[in-house]
Simulated scan of single mutants.
Amino acid sequence: MFELPVRPGPEPRTRGPIPHGQLNQISPTTMQEELWQRMRSLPGVYLAPTHVPYPEARAIHLAPEFGTGPEDAFIKRSREFAHLHPQQDGSLHMTLPQLVKKEVTEAGWGIPHPIQNTQLVYGPRDREEMETVWKILLESYAYARGKSTQV
């Protein structure tokens, strides 16, 4: 079973549905960049524009031979499964299995997108939060690869 610690403090303010993002408690730029480097280094990942109306977002896509997950493991029937919002926001959207979405929401790490199949995950504010956000992102990656045990 996928479990997360409860995110400390109040949840950040958000906006949306389009664009959907985080308004305060912004992740430090250095953490955003570290997270981006981790995201883009996953095996089978390639970089391409996002398929959502937030052109400044940096998206990761999964090559077909790596991505054998269900249709809803990808954003808008593309190969994209996650993207990182611009520095003034620092949150992410990603696809996740339903049980993981529920845990992310209940533990206070994010909220479902109001009109898409993605989950908004709040940007990490410190090193400990970085590891939790990375754990969530790895679930998105496993889901897109067809290897999630949380479905």
Score class of each variant (00 low, 15 high):
Pro53Phe: 00
Tyr54Trp: 11
Tyr54Arg: 09
Ala57Cys: 11
Ala57Tyr: 01
Arg58Cys: 07
Arg58Tyr: 04
Ile60His: 09
Ala63Tyr: 02
Ala63Asn: 08
Glu65Pro: 00
Glu65Cys: 05
Thr68His: 00
Thr68Trp: 04
Pro70Asn: 09
Asp72Ala: 02
Ala73Met: 12
Ser78His: 02
Arg79Ser: 15
Glu80Met: 08
Phe81His: 08
His85Met: 04
Pro86Gly: 11
Pro86His: 12
Pro86Ile: 13
Gly90Asn: 05
Leu92Ala: 12
Leu92Val: 14
His93Pro: 05
Met94Trp: 01
Thr95Trp: 03
Thr95Cys: 14
Thr95Asn: 13
Thr95Val: 13
Thr95Asp: 13
Leu96Asp: 12
Pro97Arg: 01
Leu99Tyr: 11
Val100Gln: 06
Val100Trp: 01
Val100Lys: 05
Lys101Ser: 13
Lys101Trp: 05
Glu103Val: 05
Thr105Arg: 15
Thr105Ala: 14
Glu106Gly: 12
Ala107Arg: 09
Pro112Lys: 01
His113Met: 09
His113Arg: 07
Pro114Cys: 09
Gln116His: 14
Asn117Thr: 03
Thr118Ala: 15
Gln119Val: 04
Gln119Lys: 06
Tyr122Ile: 05
Pro124Arg: 03
Arg125Trp: 04
Glu128Gly: 09
Glu128Met: 02
Glu129Asp: 10
Val133Thr: 02
Leu137Val: 12
Leu137Lys: 02
